[in-house]
Design a protein around this nucleic acid. Structure first.
Lengths: 343, 343
DNA sequence: TTGAAAGCGCTAACAG
DNA sequence: CTGTTAGCGCTTTCAA
C-alpha cells in the first residue's frame, strides 16, 4: 500500500534513498539490476520503493545515460488494417528486447510525416521504422543526420536511406497482370483509391498496366474513390463500372476491402464468378476468409515485414557495427481463391 | 542543406549558439517562440539551426521544464477496429493543442496493462487515457499517485479513478434485449467472444440476459469463440447454432464482424431476414454499409468518446483546477438496419 | 559492495 | 531584448 508523502510533487530517487537509508546511487543500482548490491540492501530498497509507489523518471535517466529505449514507428494510418498488422510484427520482436515502439501517424501527408518525424526524433529514439521510401528532403536529412538505425518498410522499389524491408509493389502488379492474362481474361477494369500520395498503390498500378501493355492489353476502364466505407465503395464502383463497360471480364481492385464489396455485389446479381467475371484484390486480409467466395489476392507480408524491421533495429542497437542485410525483399505469392481461375 | 559537423555526437543548443553567435538562452527562446526576441537575432538563429539540421532534445527540455507534452493512451488492441477510431477522435482534438498521444497496447491482459502503464508513467506524461474501469490494484495506485489527469474510457458502469467517458454497456445490452422483444422475437441465441477479460462485452451480455429475464425470456442457445477471422467465425457459429437449435428466431452477436458473417451465411442459405430470423450486432462499424443487407446494431460512440476524453485532458493540462464534468455517459442509439423489424 | 562528485542538454528565474 | 546562474533527476565515473 503506497504511503502518502507530503506534497503532490512526484517521488524521486532521493525519497526512496531517505526512506531506505541507502544512497541514491545504490537505490538506482537496485532499481536497474545493475552492479553488485548485497541482498540485504537490495531488499530494503525494493521495499521502500514499493511502499512509496515510486515510479522512476525515465526522462532524467535517459538524459543522464544518453540512452532511450524507444523505437519510433511512423505509419500513414491506423485505419488501413495493413498497418496494425505490421505493428504487431514489430511488437512481437521488440517484446523480447527492452525496446519499446512508439507510433506516429502521417495520414499519408509528407508534411505531416516531416512534423511527426521531427517530433519523434526530438525524443532521441534508438531507431526509426518508417513506412515507404518517399519522404521530403527535410525528412531524409533528419533521418540521415540522426545517426540512428533507420528501416524503411513496405516497399523496396527505390533506394533506402539506411536499410529497407518490403515487397516490390511494381512487381506485385506485374505478377497479378500476368496471372490474369494467363487465366484467359482480356477485358480488364481497375478500381483503386484516389490517393496520389499512396506510392505503393501507384507502383502496383504502374506495374500492372506495364505488364498488360507488354502483352498488348490495355485497361478498358478504371475508377478511383476516396472516403467512405471501402466495402460500400467497392459495391458502388463495381456496379457503375459494369453499367458503363459491360464487356469487362475481369476486375482488379487495389485492396481487398473494395474487392470484397465488388464480390458481394456480383454474387447478389447472380453473376457467375469467375466464368463471367474474374476478380482479384490485394493484401490478403483475414477478412476474406469469411466471404461466400474467397477473393483472389496477394499477400503483402505485413507481419513479416514488421518482424524483420524490428530485428534489424534490435541488432543494430545491440551492436552498431553488426553485419546485417540492408535491403530485404520479401516475395508475395498469389492466393487464387475462387475468383481467378481459367474461365 | 545541413552542414556536416565534426564527430557523430548529436547537435546541441550550444552548437547553434556558437554558429549563430547568440547565447544558448536566446536560441532556446527562438526555437520555442517564447518571449521577445528581435527579428534580426531570430533570423540568425533560425538560419543557423536549419543549416546545422538541429533537432532539439526534448528529453533535456522536459527535465528542465518539468513539462512533457505527451498523453499516454492505453488500449487493449489495435486489431479491434473500435480502438483505432477512438484514437482518431483523440488525435483530432489533441492536434489543436501541443499535446501528443502515445499509444500502448495491453492485449486485454491486466498484468500487461500494469507494465505498460508503469512504462508510460515513467515518461511523466501530462495525462492518461485508459480503456476500461477494471485495473489491477497496482495500476490504480499508480494512476492515483501520478498526480496527472486520468480519463477512463469506453465504459461507465463503475467508479472512475479520476474521470470517465463512455457508454453503459449494461444498459446497451438491456436496450437491445427490449428492442428485440418488442419486435416480437422470443427464441434468442447469443454469440460472442470467449474473453473473460473483455469486461465491456461481459457487461453487455449481463444487461442483455437480465432484461430478457425480466420479461420471462431466457437465451435458448449461446456460443463463444476465440481467435481466427471474425467474419468466418460468425459464419461457422451461426451454422452450428442453427443446426443445434433450429427453432431460434433471433441471433444477437457481441460484435458486428461476427454478425456480418452470420448475415452473409443466412442470406446465402436463402433464409428470410428478418421474417424467419432476425439479427443484431454491436458497434456500428462502417463496414456494415457495404453488406447486402444492413445489420441492426448499436453505435458505441467511439470517435466521440475519444474526443471528449482528449478534451478533458487538454482542459486539465491547461488549468488543473478547471471545473469539468468528471463522468460523461454517452447514449448509444439502435440502428435498426434491415434485420431487426417486427417479423 | 557502497558512496560522492560531476554533468547529461535544456529551461526557469532573475538581472541587466 | 539578451544574458547569467542554477538546477531538473538521474547515471557515469571514480574513489573508498
Amino acid at each position: 500500500m503506497p504511503v502518502a508523502h507530503d506534497d503532490t510533487r512526484p517521488l524521486t530517487l532521493r525519497d526512496v534513498s531517505e526512506a531506505s537509508g541507502v544512497s541514491e546511487m545504490t537505490v538506482s543500482r537496485v532499481l536497474r539490476n545493475r552492479g553488485d548490491v548485497s541482498p540485504a540492501t537490495r531488499e530494503k530498497v525494493l521495499e521502500a520503493a514499493k511502499a512509496l509507489g515510486y515510479v522512476p523518471n525515465k526522462i532524467a535517466g535517459a538524459l543522464a545515460s544518453q540512452r532511450v529505449n524507444l523505437v519510433a514507428v511512423i505509419i500513414p494510418s491506423f485505419r488501413n488494417m495493413v498497418f496494425p498488422e505490421v505493428l504487431s510484427g514489430i511488437s512481437s520482436v521488440l517484446e523480447e528486447t527492452d525496446l519499446q515502439p512508439v507510433v506516429g501517424v502521417t495520414d499519408y501527408l509528407p508534411e505531416k510525416e516531416e512534423k511527426v518525424l521531427y517530433e519523434m526524433l526530438s525524443w532521441r529514439p534508438s531507431g526509426v521504422i518508417i513506412a515507404g521510401l518517399e519522404h521530403t528532403d527535410a525528412s531524409r536529412a533528419m533521418l540521415k543526420a540522426s545517426g540512428i538505425p533507420v528501416v524503411e518498410i513496405m516497399d523496396v522499389d527505390g533506394t533506402p536511406i539506411d536499410s529497407m524491408v518490403g515487397i516490390s509493389h511494381r512487381r506485385a502488379g506485374r505478377e497479378m497482370a500476368k496471372a490474369i492474362l494467363k487465366a484467359g481474361f482480356q477485358n480488364i477494369g481497375f478500381m483503386g483509391t484516389k490517393m496520389p500520395l499512396d506510392h505503393r498503390a501507384r507502383k502496383r498500378f504502374e506495374g500492372f498496366t506495364e505488364a498488360l501493355a507488354k502483352n498488348g492489353v490495355e485497361i478498358m476502364d478504371q475508377e478511383f474513390y476516396s472516403g467512405g466505407s471501402a466495402l460500400a465503395k467497392g459495391r458502388e464502383m463495381t456496379r457503375d463500372m459494369l453499367d458503363r463497360t459491360p464487356e469487362l471480364d475481369f476486375l482488379y481492385y487495389s485492396n481487398d476491402m473494395i474487392g470484397a464489396g465488388g464480390l458481394l455485389y456480383l454474387l447478389e446479381k447472380g453473376v457467375k464468378i469467375p466464368e463471367e467475371i474474374g476478380l482479384a484484390g490485394f493484401n490478403g486480409v483475414e477478412l476474406l476468409d469469411g466471404l461466400p467466395r474467397k477473393l483472389a489476392t496477394m499477400d503483402a507480408c505485413r507481419t513479416e515485414i514488421g518482424r524483420k524491421a524490428a530485428q534489424i533495429i534490435a541488432a543494430r542497437v545491440d551492436n552498431p557495427d553488426a553485419e546485417i542485410e540492408k535491403e530485404i525483399e520479401l516475395t508475395p505469392t498469389i492466393a487464387y481463391g475462387g475468383t481467378l481461375r481459367r474461365k
